[in-house]
Nucleic acid binder design. Structure first.
Length: 477
RNA sequence: CGGGGCGUAGCGCAGUCCGGUUAGCGCGCCUGCUUUGGGAGCAGGAAGUCGAGAGUUCAAAUCUCUCCGCCCCGACCA
């Protein structure tokens, strides 16, 4: 049915690239590992941005902007940080035709430039907290790249906050984790597990890294966002101190957190099908496309006028398009908007005029409905809400059907290959056993859950030592 | 960086083994007419430094050498 899109069952990663091409979201650029985000893809990013930005503002954050270039010496100040990032840095050594005295690193993340700045801003406890976010691009020289999922340059937001107490900083970290979870569930229609990373998977320079993890349709995990509690690590490296109420000098406590254009990759891989992109209504740049179907010119004028009347008052309430192009026939248009993932298609032809109806078609299920022209906007809005909810529910059912408890290491090694999925297993906490998961199964510990749900006594699936909680293990992107 | 594949019109490809007219095909694009409820038909048309450079030859998309780039799979990562 869909020309030019490989079936998921044939080649999942080819399918992924085909969906992006068919929906005209992005393309590879002349620069290795970089992508051009085209208008359809960027519109998705703008919607993600708009919503998250609102959520950050609602929780008391402000936006600011820090420079792209970071003096090399800054990056080197925090030992773990430089260790983690040095392999993937892009460095500028020439400027204005002359060799620079000090090379400038193109930011892979902005902790160092930000903390060197915060050091100047903070003297007193009265200066705290600082709750800043920035929308920016960053560069990480990746070996292997894939559109949206991993590119050498990507767009993201990075929040950087400074607090007087450890408790407040940890609360901030968890607050943002919850913002990410809510955004994933309510907007991306993506059920996620939340938890904390193991030491091996932790952000370079963090005390703890919290994350949201979602299951893609190939049953692999994708980390959608991270929130880090940085403790005093960066404050010590950049000498960021404040005087508290008692006149004592103390280091500030830090957090940082981010989500990137990778979320677009997650959205694609969770919801799209063999006919192309499927966008959750709340993030869809165009929520409804209206297609008139005519037999001659007089009809076309009449139908266009009717659609204008039917969509009276829609502007400002719902984003819609009327596809009245004369050079394409209806079937072509149906297909085109399906590939692009528009949630609802409305058709209006001579038969519908006779019956005072409109044909309404869901992108997510393909279901076709004949509905009255009365109260059309309300019907559309209701259906959009239904689609949003159904998409979440389907993803949740899929994830739960492919998530298992497993206590036998050999069985685990077999099942992670076939059928694959998420596995809750007991782990003693030792890095040695963690390494054995990875080496023997190519799967990693995605997170250690925080709540009570997976707390139970058991024995480590690798070594048999006591364990008090199950951890989530899966192959991942 | 290792393994595999590829580079010929905007996109997808044939032609390359075995050198030889004016480098083809499909889709798309432009013009016109007919069409229009699931990817329209006919007619006409535009569009190529055959990835780059060097070499062999009367003659190179095709043979030789060098280089560049991209995609897929692995090791590292949001």
């Amino acid at each position: 049915m869909a020309k030019g899109i490989t079936k998921r069952s044939e080649d999942y990663s080819k399918w992924y690239l085909d969906v992006i091409a068919a929906a005209d979201l992005a393309e590879h650029s002349a620069v290795r590992g970089c992508m051009v985000i085209k208008p359809n893809g960027y519109a998705l990013w703008e919607n993600i941005q708009r919503q998250l930005d609102n959520m950050f503002k609602e929780t008391g954050h402000e936006n600011a902007y820090f420079p792209l270039f970071i003096p090399e010496s800054f990056i080197k100040k925090e030992a773990q940080h430089i260790k983690g990032f040095s392999p993937e840095l892009a460095v500028v050594t020439y400027g204005g035709g002359k060799q620079l005295e000090e090379p400038l690193v193109i930011r892979p993340t902005s902790e160092t430039i930000i903390w060197s700045t915060y050091a100047k801003w903070i003297q007193s406890y009265r200066d705290l907290p600082i709750l800043i976010n920035q929308w920016a691009n960053v560069v990480r020289w990746e070996m292997r790249t894939r559109l949206f999922l991993r590119t050498a340059e990507f767009l993201w937001q990075e929040g950087h906050t400074a607090h007087a107490t450890e408790q407040e900083a940890i609360e901030e970290t968890l607050l943002i984790l919850d913002v990410y979870r809510r955004f994933a569930e309510e907007y991306l229609a993506a059920p996620v597990f939340t938890g904390v990373k193991t030491a091996a998977e932790r952000f370079a320079g963090a005390i703890d890294t919290y994350c949201i993890e979602a299951m893609m349709q190939d049953k692999k995990a994708l980390q959608g966002g991270t929130s880090h509690y940085l403790g005093e690590n960066f404050a010590r490296a950049f000498d960021v101190t404040f005087q508290d109420e008692n006149g004592e000098n103390k280091y500030v406590f830090a957090t940082s957190w981010g989500v990137s254009t990778r979320l677009i990759g997650a959205l694609i891989m969770m919801h799209s099908d063999d006919n192309g992109l499927v966008i959750p209504p709340r993030l869809a740049p165009t929520k409804v496309v209206f297609i008139p179907i005519w037999r001659d010119d007089s009809q076309s004028d009449m139908l266009k006028a009717k659609i204008t009347a039917l969509t009276e008052g829609w502007k400002g309430r719902i984003s819609f398009k009327v596809d009245d192009r004369d050079q394409y026939r209806p079937g072509y248009k149906f297909n085109e908007w399906e590939k692009k993932g528009v949630p609802i298609r409305l058709e209006l032809g001579p038969k519908d005029i006779e019956n005072n109806q409109v044909v309404m078609v869901r992108r997510d299920t393909g279901e076709k409905m004949f509905v009255s022209q009365e109260g059309l906007l309300e019907r559309v809005e209701n259906l959009l809400a239904t689609i949003q909810q159904d998409m979440f529910n389907r993803a949740l059912v899929f994830r739960d059907a492919n998530t298992y408890d497993e206590d036998n290491f050999e069985a685990f090694r077999n099942r992670i290959e076939d059928p694959g999925g998420f596995f809750w297993v007991h782990w003693c906490g030792s890095p040695a056993c963690e390494t054995r998961f990875q080496d023997s199964s190519k799967a990693t510990i995605r997170l250690i859950p925080m709540g009570e749900s997976k707390k139970e006594d058991g024995s480590c699936i690798v070594c048999g030592q006591p364990s008090h909680t199950r951890v989530l293990v899966a192959k991942s992107y």
